[in-house]
Amino acid sequence: MNEYEGGGLAAGIGVVGGIIYLAIIVLMIAGMWKTFEKAGKPGWAALIPIYNAIVLIEIIGKPMIWVLWLLIPCVNFVFGIWALNLLSKSFGKSEGFTVGMIIFPYVFLPILGFGDAKYLGPSAAEAQNGGFGNNPFNNPNNPFNSPNNPFNKPSGNQDTPNDTPPPVV
Protein backbone atom coordinates (compact mmCIF):
# COMPACT_ATOMS: atom_id res chain seq x y z
CA MET A 1 0.00 0.00 0.00
CA ASN A 2 1.49 3.32 -0.96
CA GLU A 3 0.95 6.69 0.68
CA TYR A 4 -1.87 7.74 -1.68
CA GLU A 5 -4.07 4.72 -1.01
CA GLY A 6 -4.06 5.38 2.75
CA GLY A 7 -5.18 8.96 2.16
CA GLY A 8 -8.30 7.82 0.33
CA LEU A 9 -9.19 5.45 3.16
CA ALA A 10 -8.74 8.21 5.74
CA ALA A 11 -10.89 10.57 3.67
CA GLY A 12 -13.63 7.94 3.45
CA ILE A 13 -13.57 7.39 7.21
CA GLY A 14 -13.68 11.16 7.72
CA VAL A 15 -16.69 11.58 5.42
CA VAL A 16 -18.61 8.76 7.13
CA GLY A 17 -17.74 10.17 10.55
CA GLY A 18 -18.89 13.62 9.45
CA ILE A 19 -22.22 12.26 8.21
CA ILE A 20 -22.80 10.42 11.50
CA TYR A 21 -21.89 13.59 13.44
CA LEU A 22 -24.36 15.70 11.43
CA ALA A 23 -27.09 13.08 11.93
CA ILE A 24 -26.58 13.22 15.71
CA ILE A 25 -26.70 17.05 15.66
CA VAL A 26 -29.93 17.01 13.62
CA LEU A 27 -31.45 14.48 16.04
CA MET A 28 -30.54 16.66 19.05
CA ILE A 29 -31.95 19.81 17.42
CA ALA A 30 -35.16 17.98 16.51
CA GLY A 31 -35.51 16.76 20.10
CA MET A 32 -34.93 20.26 21.46
CA TRP A 33 -37.37 21.69 18.89
CA LYS A 34 -40.14 19.31 20.04
CA THR A 35 -39.31 19.95 23.72
CA PHE A 36 -39.68 23.70 23.20
CA GLU A 37 -43.00 23.17 21.40
CA LYS A 38 -44.30 20.98 24.24
CA ALA A 39 -43.52 23.82 26.66
CA GLY A 40 -45.47 26.30 24.51
CA LYS A 41 -42.41 28.07 23.09
CA PRO A 42 -41.43 28.39 19.42
CA GLY A 43 -39.59 25.31 18.20
CA TRP A 44 -37.37 27.27 15.82
CA ALA A 45 -35.72 28.83 18.89
CA ALA A 46 -33.65 25.65 19.16
CA LEU A 47 -31.69 26.78 16.09
CA ILE A 48 -30.46 30.14 17.42
CA PRO A 49 -27.52 29.74 19.84
CA ILE A 50 -28.08 32.28 22.64
CA TYR A 51 -31.82 32.64 22.12
CA ASN A 52 -32.30 28.91 22.79
CA ALA A 53 -30.68 29.42 26.20
CA ILE A 54 -33.09 32.28 26.89
CA VAL A 55 -36.07 30.11 25.93
CA LEU A 56 -34.72 27.25 28.06
CA ILE A 57 -34.46 29.62 31.04
CA GLU A 58 -38.06 30.71 30.48
CA ILE A 59 -39.16 27.05 30.36
CA ILE A 60 -37.46 26.18 33.64
CA GLY A 61 -38.68 29.37 35.31
CA LYS A 62 -35.39 30.99 36.26
CA PRO A 63 -34.44 34.69 36.04
CA MET A 64 -32.71 36.08 32.95
CA ILE A 65 -29.41 36.52 34.83
CA TRP A 66 -28.94 32.82 34.13
CA VAL A 67 -28.03 33.72 30.54
CA LEU A 68 -24.92 35.37 31.94
CA TRP A 69 -24.14 32.36 34.12
CA LEU A 70 -24.49 30.07 31.09
CA LEU A 71 -21.98 32.17 29.13
CA ILE A 72 -19.21 32.42 31.75
CA PRO A 73 -16.58 29.68 31.34
CA CYS A 74 -16.37 27.10 34.16
CA VAL A 75 -19.53 28.50 35.78
CA ASN A 76 -21.58 27.38 32.80
CA PHE A 77 -20.93 23.70 33.59
CA VAL A 78 -22.64 24.00 36.96
CA PHE A 79 -25.54 26.09 35.71
CA GLY A 80 -25.91 23.95 32.58
CA ILE A 81 -26.29 20.80 34.65
CA TRP A 82 -28.65 22.61 37.00
CA ALA A 83 -30.71 23.83 34.01
CA LEU A 84 -30.93 20.30 32.59
CA ASN A 85 -32.08 19.05 35.98
CA LEU A 86 -34.79 21.71 36.17
CA LEU A 87 -35.80 20.95 32.57
CA SER A 88 -36.27 17.28 33.32
CA LYS A 89 -38.22 18.14 36.50
CA SER A 90 -40.41 20.56 34.53
CA PHE A 91 -41.46 17.60 32.42
CA GLY A 92 -42.03 15.36 35.46
CA LYS A 93 -38.83 13.33 35.10
CA SER A 94 -36.45 12.28 37.88
CA GLU A 95 -32.79 12.91 38.63
CA GLY A 96 -31.93 9.70 36.78
CA PHE A 97 -33.29 11.24 33.59
CA THR A 98 -31.12 14.29 34.29
CA VAL A 99 -28.03 12.08 34.49
CA GLY A 100 -29.04 10.57 31.15
CA MET A 101 -29.44 14.02 29.63
CA ILE A 102 -25.95 14.96 30.82
CA ILE A 103 -24.20 11.80 29.66
CA PHE A 104 -26.23 10.97 26.52
CA PRO A 105 -28.00 14.15 25.39
CA TYR A 106 -28.33 12.83 21.83
CA VAL A 107 -30.55 10.05 23.21
CA PHE A 108 -32.42 11.75 26.07
CA LEU A 109 -33.32 15.07 24.36
CA PRO A 110 -35.23 13.23 21.61
CA ILE A 111 -36.85 11.03 24.28
CA LEU A 112 -38.01 14.18 26.08
CA GLY A 113 -39.19 15.83 22.86
CA PHE A 114 -40.79 12.90 21.05
CA GLY A 115 -41.81 10.86 24.11
CA ASP A 116 -44.97 11.03 26.16
CA ALA A 117 -43.64 13.53 28.73
CA LYS A 118 -45.99 16.43 29.41
CA TYR A 119 -44.86 19.92 30.35
CA LEU A 120 -45.97 20.51 33.94
CA GLY A 121 -44.28 23.83 34.62
CA PRO A 122 -41.05 25.05 36.14
CA SER A 123 -39.52 22.24 38.21
CA ALA A 124 -42.93 20.62 38.61
CA ALA A 125 -41.81 17.31 40.06
CA GLU A 126 -39.62 19.06 42.61
CA ALA A 127 -42.48 21.32 43.67
CA GLN A 128 -44.98 18.44 43.87
CA ASN A 129 -42.72 16.13 45.85
CA GLY A 130 -41.47 18.80 48.22
CA GLY A 131 -37.97 18.86 46.73
CA PHE A 132 -35.07 16.49 46.96
CA GLY A 133 -35.09 14.71 50.31
CA ASN A 134 -36.80 16.42 53.22
CA ASN A 135 -37.16 20.02 52.05
CA PRO A 136 -38.75 22.32 54.64
CA PHE A 137 -39.91 24.73 51.95
CA ASN A 138 -42.89 24.11 49.72
CA ASN A 139 -41.31 25.60 46.62
CA PRO A 140 -37.56 25.20 46.22
CA ASN A 141 -37.48 28.03 43.68
CA ASN A 142 -38.85 30.45 46.31
CA PRO A 143 -37.54 29.59 49.77
CA PHE A 144 -39.40 32.52 51.36
CA ASN A 145 -42.77 30.98 50.47
CA SER A 146 -42.95 28.90 53.62
CA PRO A 147 -45.70 29.29 56.23
CA ASN A 148 -43.05 28.95 58.97
CA ASN A 149 -41.05 31.86 57.62
CA PRO A 150 -40.87 34.62 60.28
CA PHE A 151 -40.65 37.27 57.56
CA ASN A 152 -44.16 36.40 56.32
CA LYS A 153 -45.78 37.26 59.68
CA PRO A 154 -47.19 40.75 60.08
CA SER A 155 -45.42 43.05 62.48
CA GLY A 156 -48.40 43.26 64.84
CA ASN A 157 -48.65 39.49 65.32
CA GLN A 158 -50.12 38.76 68.76
CA ASP A 159 -50.03 34.95 68.58
CA THR A 160 -47.16 34.82 71.04
CA PRO A 161 -47.22 38.06 73.02
CA ASN A 162 -44.10 38.92 74.92
CA ASP A 163 -45.33 41.67 77.28
CA THR A 164 -43.69 40.28 80.41
CA PRO A 165 -40.57 42.13 81.42
CA PRO A 166 -37.32 40.21 81.65
CA PRO A 167 -36.50 38.79 85.07
CA VAL A 168 -34.38 40.95 87.35
CA VAL A 169 -31.30 39.21 88.56
Rank of each mutant, 00 (worst) to 15 (best):
F137V: 15
E95H: 05
S94I: 02
I50E: 00
L22F: 13
K34H: 09
V67E: 07
I102K: 02
G100Q: 08
A10K: 04
G61F: 05
I102H: 03
N76E: 10
A45W: 04
I111R: 03
G40T: 01
W44N: 00
A30G: 08
I29F: 12
G92K: 14
P167G: 03
G92V: 12
A39Y: 06
M32E: 06
N139T: 13
W66K: 05
N142Q: 13
L68H: 05
A10E: 04
G131M: 09
V15C: 09
P105N: 07
G100S: 08
E126Q: 11
G133N: 13
N52E: 10
P63C: 10
I24W: 13
P105D: 01
Q158P: 00
G17D: 11
V67S: 04
P73K: 05
G113L: 08
L120S: 08
E37S: 09
T160M: 11
F114A: 09
P147D: 09
D163A: 09
F91A: 10
M32R: 12
L120Q: 14
N148V: 14
L84I: 14
G6H: 12
W82M: 15
K89V: 12
S155Y: 06
P122I: 12
L70S: 12
G7F: 10
E37I: 06
N129C: 02
G131K: 08
V55S: 03
Y4M: 14
V26Y: 03
I81L: 15
F144N: 15
I81C: 14
V107N: 07
S90D: 07
A23M: 11
A83F: 10
Y119G: 03
N145S: 15
P150S: 07
A45P: 00
N141M: 14
L109V: 15
K89T: 07
P166H: 03
P63F: 05
T164N: 04
I24M: 14
S94C: 04
I59S: 07
L109R: 04
N142D: 15
D163I: 14
G61Q: 11
P110H: 05
F137Y: 14
K62I: 05
G80Y: 06
V78P: 03
D163K: 08
L86P: 00
G156A: 13
T98H: 03
M32F: 14
E37F: 07
I103Y: 04
I72Y: 07
E95P: 00
K34D: 01
A45Y: 06
S90A: 09
A125Y: 08
P110C: 08
N134L: 11
G100P: 02
A124M: 02
G133K: 10
V15F: 06
I111Y: 13
L87V: 09
I72L: 15
W82C: 05
P136N: 03
G80N: 09
S94H: 04
P49N: 06
P140Y: 14
P161V: 13
A53N: 11
I50A: 12
W69M: 15
F144L: 13
E5N: 06
Y106Q: 04
E58Q: 14
W33G: 02
L27W: 07
K153W: 03
P165K: 07
I24K: 14
A45Q: 01
L9S: 02
P147H: 07
I20N: 00
A39N: 01
L22V: 15
G156F: 15
V26P: 01
I102E: 04
G8D: 01
F108S: 08
Y106R: 00
F137I: 13
V16T: 10
M1K: 03
G96K: 04
I19P: 00
N145I: 07
I72P: 06
K118W: 01
L27H: 02
G131C: 10
